[in-house]
């Protein structure tokens, strides 16, 4: 696989949210606004990048039988660091993402990339993999949250659209709206894929 492909696979063919359908829980919960989607995507990318680098550096020393606990310790540390930095420098974002920052620890995408990619590949390839996956996940979050915020709150990135008279479909920013939006987007993508085949 070429290096360019290591990067781009996370965005299109192996998109963590739309193609691998990993990390569903935080994705459904935080996509109520575009700002949240971008914040979560950035935090996720930072953690994935750091943990992919650390794990691919340590891949030859970590004994095979205890690799999973080691990965968890490494990932949890990076998540906690991200959480503390965010609390200090971006308190508004920290408040709106709430419980979902610590939950990045158990986000299966990160452990999945550590196990499937970083533990078998060099540092450079792992960096590209992390960046691709991070960008892909962020893009996916932004797409879902755009649909939900525009339909549910009548705003985009906090900017009101369509004037005061427009009635928004509140259900789209409530929990059921997450499933509806994601389901429709997945169906649309499958349809497009079937056509191109």
């Amino acid at each position: 696989m070429s290096l360019a492909k290591e990067f781009s696979k996370g965005i299109v063919s192996d998109n963590p949210l739309f193609r691998l359908t990993l990390g569903m829980c935080p994705s459904l919960a935080i996509t109520t606004s575009v700002a949240n989607g971008i914040g979560m995507g950035a935090a996720f990318t930072a953690v994935l990048l750091a943990s992919n680098i650390a794990i691919s550096l340590l891949r030859k020393i970590i004994p095979d039988s205890i690799r999973i606990p080691c990965y968890i310790v490494i990932i949890a540390s990076f998540v906690t660091i991200t959480e503390m930095v965010m609390h200090a420098y971006a308190p508004a974002l920290f408040k709106s993402l709430g419980i979902f920052i610590p939950l990045i620890v158990v986000n299966c995408i990160i452990l999945g990339r550590a196990e499937a990619f970083a533990s078998k590949n060099g540092v450079f390839a792992s960096v590209l993999d992390a960046l691709g996956m991070g960008v892909g996940y962020t893009l996916a979050l932004v797409i879902v949250s755009t649909v939900r915020e525009v339909l549910g709150a009548g705003t985009f990135y906090g900017i009101p659209l369509g004037g005061a008279s427009a009635q928004s479909a509140l259900i789209m920013i409530l929990p059921p709206g997450g499933f509806i939006a994601l389901g429709c987007i997945l169906a649309l993508l499958n349809k497009l894929q079937n056509k191109t085949r």
């Binding site: 970590i62 004994p63 606990p69 080691c70 310790v73 540390s77 906690t80 503390m84 200090a88 308190p91």
Partner: peptide
């Protein structure tokens, strides 16, 4: 051997966390 390895990993992680915490706590 495995136990000691895990201990070292957790210890390094703990040190890193407490260092970052000393930096961010006053700001928070």
């Amino acid at each position: 051997k495995l136990g000691i390895f895990l201990l070292v990993v957790a210890g390094v992680a703990g040190l890193a966390l407490s260092y970052v915490n000393t930096l961010t706590e006053p700001i928070v």
